[in-house]
Structures are given as structure tokens and as C-alpha cells.
Amino acid sequence: MEILKIQVPEGFQIDSFDKSTGEIKFAPKPKDIKERIKHFDDVLLYHGINSDVFKKECSFLTDDEIAYRQLRLIVSALNEDFPPDWQNNNQWKYFPWFDMDDSSSSGRFSFYGSDYQSSDSFCGSRLCFKSRELCDYAATTFIEIYRKFFTI
């Protein structure tokens, strides 16, 4: 078997490959991470993790433990692997704030807003975001995963 290596142009990704003709089509990569991450499968793809392998690795875990692993991957992907610098008090870090009031119409759990921390923290460092926009997006897009992490 012969191998031909093709350099994918910067800013593009492989869109399709026709085995019969050998034709490869490229499409521009979406620039905004929120356009690339819409579902948890997109998060796995971002990290190069096979979904069947992830499910198998999590098969012995409880729902909240699985949700924690999912949230760590979600935050890492949306932050584009940007690590929070806890030595830098000027770097803001954001985390979602949820309303778990019994009177909530969404079953006792809804996204309320986001907050930031500088030197103090009320959330784990692996679960904070580099911007309020990413935090709000994650909290609304992945609210069911947050629900499993916090309430089950």
C-alpha cells in the first residue's frame, strides 16, 4: 500500500474524500469555537477522542462522575486549551451560576448567569472559562450535563 501525505491548508479542514476518484475537498474551519462546538460529540472530536472509547472508559462511573469528565473536556475545548493562571489576579475567570430553586419552571435547575473570580475561587479551576461569553454559551448549551454533575 502506498501512502500519500497531503498538507491541509492553514485555516481549512477536510470536507470530503471521494475514494473512487481520489478527490479531496477542503472547507474553511469555522473561526469561532462556538461554531465548532455545538454538541458533546464535537467536544470529543476537538480532543481527538473516539465516542465509543469514551463511553467504554466511563462505563464503570456514576452519572455525576461522567458529567465531571464531560465538563472538563467541554471547558478545555471552549477555552481552546487556554489554562487559567491562578497566580495572575488580573486574569478574570468565569463560571456558570445556576438557580436550583424548587419554584423554577425548568425542573429545579436553570442557568442564572455567570460570575468571575480573580484570586478567590468558588469553583474548580478545571471548570472555569476565560470569558463570560464562553461561560454563558457552555451553561446554556450543555445544561443537561451540568444538571447531572450538580444534582444527581
Rank of each mutant, 00 (worst) to 15 (best):
I3V: 15
L4Q: 15
K5T: 15
K5V: 15
K5Y: 13
Q7E: 11
Q7S: 06
Q7V: 07
V8I: 14
V8A: 03
V8E: 03
V8Y: 04
P9C: 09
E10Q: 12
E10A: 13
G11D: 01
G11E: 03
F12V: 00
Q13F: 08
S16Q: 14
S16H: 14
D18E: 14
K19G: 11
S20P: 04
T21F: 07
G22F: 08
F26H: 01
F26R: 02
F26C: 00
P28M: 10
K29S: 07
P30T: 08
K31F: 09
D32E: 11
I33N: 00
I33P: 02
I33T: 07
K34V: 14
I37K: 07
K38W: 09
K38D: 06
K38H: 09
H39P: 02
D41F: 12
D42C: 04
V43D: 00
V43I: 02
V43M: 04
V43R: 02
L45N: 12
L45E: 10
Y46G: 11
H47W: 08
H47M: 01
I49F: 05
I49D: 05
N50E: 12
V53F: 08
K56D: 06
E57D: 13
F60W: 09
T62V: 07
D63E: 14
E65R: 10
E65C: 00
A67I: 00
R69H: 10
L71H: 09
R72L: 04
L73D: 06
I74T: 12
S76N: 14
S76W: 11
A77R: 09
A77P: 09
N79A: 01
N79K: 06
E80G: 08
E80R: 12
F82Y: 13
W86C: 12
W86G: 05
W86K: 10
Q87M: 15
Q87K: 15
Q87R: 14
N89M: 11
N90I: 00
N90P: 04
Y94R: 01
Y94M: 00
F95V: 09
W97P: 02
W97S: 12
F98L: 04
M100H: 07
D102A: 10
S103L: 13
S103K: 14
S104R: 15
S104M: 11
S106G: 05
S106P: 00
G107E: 06
G107Q: 02
F111D: 01
Y112D: 13
G113T: 04
Q117N: 11
D120G: 13
S121Y: 13
G124H: 09
G124C: 08
R126K: 13
R126W: 12
L127C: 02
C128F: 10
C128K: 08
C128Y: 08
F129L: 05
F129W: 07
K130R: 06
K130P: 04
K130H: 03
K130A: 01
S131D: 00
L134E: 01
L134N: 02
D136C: 10
Y137T: 00
Y137K: 02
Y137E: 06
Y137L: 02
F142D: 04
I143N: 05
I143H: 05
I143V: 15
I145D: 02
Y146N: 00
Y146I: 04
Y146P: 06
Y146G: 03
K148T: 03
T151Q: 13
